[in-house]
């Protein structure tokens, strides 16, 4: 849907009685096209955090699954997954603290726990993920297999939170583009996180010359990107049903990034490439490595474009006021 801004026009006081139950699609007269909401200040830094959080959480989950269900030939995946999880431990907290406007008071996040705030929930998810991932990696380095098996379980549970809580963070706001699609955004983020983790593990395995787990990781990346694709379709449907713009159409720059990066590199390329191999294409290592890189780039592009598009939608009164008409108490 393309957005045409209606000209500024204030209502003539016909003294018509205001009917709160009027048709939802009745035209909206804005206040001289002034923004009705304030946008978030989140940009590249937070997009990078969401990407890294999803990647490391997904890697920890895959490593745990490989450790519990896999055989000896999957030990490489377990080791590399635990290492990739450390990205979130070492880069996650600094990125978030850097994004605060009074970073010297970051510890106030730990004063309280508020279950209505995904930012507060996420603080504890990231803290426990960091603690248990660090313990698991240390045990792995020291060769204490039993200890690592024990600490990986809480790390994996927190890792599941890392792949998806950031979608709740965005959706539990009044920003129309994010608030309109709580479930589909969660599906997109969880799928993209798993896809990125599987792609990174596959890439790391090939670099190490260990391709024993490659078919499993490719199958997993296929399932993850399919989940993400379903989420993207559901989000688009939901936005259309509410009469507001989706991430592909809210403005040109973020729309192009969403369509080419998130949908193209993040879902279309891997779906075609992995499905092609599954159907019986010849194994081409370069193609699989390129696909893995595309999945990673697409995962970052998804977060960057959804953040930018949401901020844009918050600035447009036609979007926020339309959303606030449709979002009735049900």
């Amino acid at each position: 849907m393309t957005l045409v801004s209606t000209p500024s026009r204030a209502p003539y006081g016909r003294e018509a009685k205001y009917d709160p139950l009027r048709a939802d699609n009745a035209p909206i007269t804005t206040y001289y096209d002034q923004p009705q909401l304030k946008k978030s200040h989140w940009g590249t830094r937070v997009a990078l955090y969401i990407f890294i959080a999803g990647l490391s959480g997904g890697a920890q989950l895959i490593a745990t699954a490989a450790d519990l269900a896999g055989g000896e030939q999957h030990r490489g995946v377990v080791r590399r997954g635990r290492h990739i999880a450390l990205l979130g431990v070492f880069f996650g907290p600094p990125l978030l603290i850097w994004d605060l406007h009074s970073p010297d008071r970051f510890y106030n996040m730990l004063r309280i726990f508020r279950r209505t705030s995904p930012m507060s929930i996420g603080t504890y998810i990231l803290s426990s993920f960091s603690l248990f991932s660090l313990m698991t990696a240390t045990a792995q380095l020291a060769g204490w297999r039993k200890a690592a098996q024990l600490t990986q379980l809480p790390a994996a549970i927190a890792g599941a939170g890392m792949t998806t809580y950031t979608a709740s963070l965005l959706t539990a706001t009044s920003t129309p583009l994010w608030a309109a699609a709580p479930r589909s955004l969660a599906l997109q983020f969880a799928g993209s996180s798993f896809g990125a983790a599987a792609a990174a593990l596959q890439l790391a395995g090939r670099v190490d010359g260990d391709e024993a787990a490659a078919p499993v990781l490719e199958g997993l990346a296929l399932a993850a990107t399919a989940t993400e694709f379903v989420g993207a379709l559901a989000a688009e449907r939901r936005h259309r049903a509410l009469g507001i713009a989706d991430a592909a159409s809210v403005n040109t720059a973020s729309g192009a990034l969403y369509k080419l990066g998130a949908l193209g590199l993040g879902t279309a390329v891997p779906l075609a490439s992995y499905a092609g191999k599954l159907i019986g294409g010849r194994p081409r290592p370069w193609l699989m490595m390129t696909t893995a890189l595309a999945v990673l780039a697409g995962s970052f592009a998804l977060r960057l474009s959804v953040l930018a598009a949401g901020n844009e939608s918050a600035q447009r009164p036609q979007q926020s006021l339309r959303f606030a008409r449709r979002e009735k108490v049900r």
């Binding site: 002034q34 608030a179 709580p182 989940t227 449709r326």
Partner: peptide
């Protein structure tokens, strides 16, 4: 410049988090 039917943002935490965790 007032929304006709504003909503409570925290109502969306439950559906979003449970759906995302189920997918994960």
């Amino acid at each position: 410049n007032l929304p006709a039917a504003p909503s409570r943002a925290s109502n969306r935490v439950g559906p979003s988090l449970s759906f995302g965790l189920a997918a994960a």
